[in-house]
Design a protein around this nucleic acid. Sequence first.
DNA 1: GTGATTGCAAATCTTTTGCACTAAA
DNA 2: TTTAGTGCAAAAGATTTGCAATCAC
Lengths: 144, 144
Amino acid sequence: MESNRTYSNALDLLKSVGLRPTRQRLSLARLLFERGDRHVTAEQLHSEALAARVRVSLATVYNTLHQFTSAGLLNELVVDSGRSYFDTNTGHHHHFFHENTSTLEDIPGDQVRIDSLPAPAEGREISRVEVIIRVRDEAPRTSD
Amino acid sequence: MESNRTYSNALDLLKSVGLRPTRQRLSLARLLFERGDRHVTAEQLHSEALAARVRVSLATVYNTLHQFTSAGLLNELVVDSGRSYFDTNTGHHHHFFHENTSTLEDIPGDQVRIDSLPAPAEGREISRVEVIIRVRDEAPRTSD
DNA sequence: GTGATTGCAAATCTTTTGCACTAAA
DNA sequence: TTTAGTGCAAAAGATTTGCAATCAC
């Protein structure tokens, strides 16, 4: 499953979630959603935007990432201390977290089967189930 | 499930992992390990220490938590943006994360069965598998 | 005594916020 | 025009670091 929504362009995507299509939002949406599934930090996206000659401030990148998350276009992931990752894949899936590189990799939802999930207490509902498989290099020799 | 190690006192615990038993480390070890399984932030532990009339600085609490983690006495958990939790249970288990209260609750390892875990890439090994079940108060149905 | 440990405050790093300015509708 | 959105810099938190003072051995 690629992008959770299939819009021919960023304009329609923004319109569909009721966000005013400003130049910054359009540019960031293109960077985020036109390259398949991605996991980016605010800092990374800001750097990418600058590299693509898109004038945008870091504060706006943060605001935009949160607006996109609220709109359901992104998922926020907290796996690394003091830093948030934003995932363009909002479907059911899990993650490898590569500790050596601090990068995330998707695991399709059907590749992890969880049985006998305990029920939450009364009056509570499950918001999300996250499975994070932390991996690291095993040998002093780097392959790959 | 109590502490993963059974030492009659904090002194032996510290000695067993090669940490010099200073007054601060002894006090923090007692606060951490003599009350069953706990999930604390540095700030929380610092407050507890002060409440218990233990003179210790926040910086030392951070240092100590990391030393204990390196020594295998604690597990560091990252589930909440911008804040680390330290878990006195270092055995195989998972967590409920209560979003309303930002608190963690253990789930015994055998209550979550994971099948068909994907293999990590070549040259990589699994460091840890974390399952976090995020729960929140049931949404009040105002309408619809 | 000697080196490890601690405390304090300053420094870092990520993220948020206030407010004047700019742009979309 | 009218209001939402943006940029900048300052603020806010959490965590770390430098270094002199202190403590364990």
